[in-house]
């Protein structure tokens, strides 16, 4: 059985795998956006740049101090998360009482500013990042690098872990309740403003974490975030803004759909997600998992 639906099986599996890899990043990134939007009602347009910062911090750690990938996986999200903490504490916090568009504009501006500074300091050319896991597994029809399996596995564990934390734990219950009625939760003695700050920092750290994971696969360049974030926003629109589990499933699902499109209709691969988004907006504007108004 060398072909399936007239397509070589090796190509099919290869593209599904690439789809799952891309889907891992769509999933992690749209998850962070969903958390931020769900709790802070902020559309975080800086998310792509924060992802790029994660990759950049990993590259700088390696290039300057020789600190390897595994340490970077720990350090970079903390660094990026702290930058998110500062953005919330000094800027976003003062915009919550205004129309949501102000916070959105702030994150757009922050994104452009940070991207510009990175271009100024590091140039626009991409930097390669060495693969920390050489080798792979031969599945007879295709060869799968270990690192790709690692990315898919970690993305699954981190996304589902985050969902479990928010949906099933006591601290998650505070987040869900604060999402519905922050003032009432404050009268219970819960410091909701601090919780919002930590939530934003966590979701931003998640973007930084994704960036480190992406560094060995894609090149570390100032544009890597803005290239990804457009697709991720389409994923969020399709999945439904603010739904955690929805964004995870939609992220992986659309990655695979994109991969399969590359096999069956390569010309459509770069637009298929946007076509799905347009159809979704026409049929079900609140998205697959969003609450219908």
């Amino acid at each position: 059985m060398d072909t399936l639906f007239g397509v070589p099986v090796a190509a099919l599996i290869g593209q599904v795998l690439i789809g799952l890899i891309n889907g891992s990043f769509y999933s992690l990134m749209s998850l962070g956006l969903a958390i931020i939007f769900g709790l802070l009602h902020v559309v975080n347009f800086a998310h792509g740049v924060q992802y790029m910062l994660g990759a950049l911090v990993a590259w700088v750690l390696l290039d300057t101090w020789g600190i390897n990938y595994w340490w970077a996986l720990l350090i970079a999200p903390v660094v990026v998360g702290l930058s998110g903490l500062a953005i919330e504490r000094f800027f976003l916090r003062h915009l919550y009482h205004l129309d949501h568009v102000y916070a959105l504009l702030l994150t757009v501006g922050m994104g452009i500013l940070i991207e510009g500074l990175v271009k100024f300091k590091f140039g626009i050319g991409g930097q390669p990042y060495p693969n920390p896991m050489s080798g792979g597994v031969d599945l007879s029809v295709t060869f799968v690098p270990w690192y790709r399996l690692w990315v898919i596995g970690v993305a699954l564990v981190v996304s589902l872990g985050t969902w479990y934390f928010i949906d099933r734990t006591k601290l998650g219950a505070y987040l869900r309740a604060a999402n519905e009625n922050p003032n009432l939760v404050r009268t219970f003695g819960v410091n909701v403003p601090r919780m919002l700050m930590l939530t934003y920092a966590f979701a931003v750290a998640l973007a930084g974490f994704s960036g480190v994971m992406a560094a060995p696969i894609y090149q570390v360049s100032p544009y890597m975030g803005s290239n990804l974030i457009i697709v991720v926003f389409a994923v969020v629109v399709i999945g439904g803004m603010g739904s955690i589990l929805g964004s995870i499933l939609t992220g992986f699902g659309l990655g695979v759909i994109e991969g399969l499109t590359k096999v069956f209709y390569p010309e459509g691969a770069s637009v298929v997600i946007f076509v799905v988004m347009i159809l979704m907006l026409a049929v079900r504007p609140s998205g697959l998992f969003g609450r219908q108004p």
Binding site: N183, R186, T187, F188, G189, V190, N191, V192, P193
Partner: peptide, 8 residues
């Protein structure tokens, strides 16, 4: 005082 402090 913020609400969370009054609750205490």
């Amino acid at each position: 005082l913020p609400p969370e402090a009054i609750a205490h």
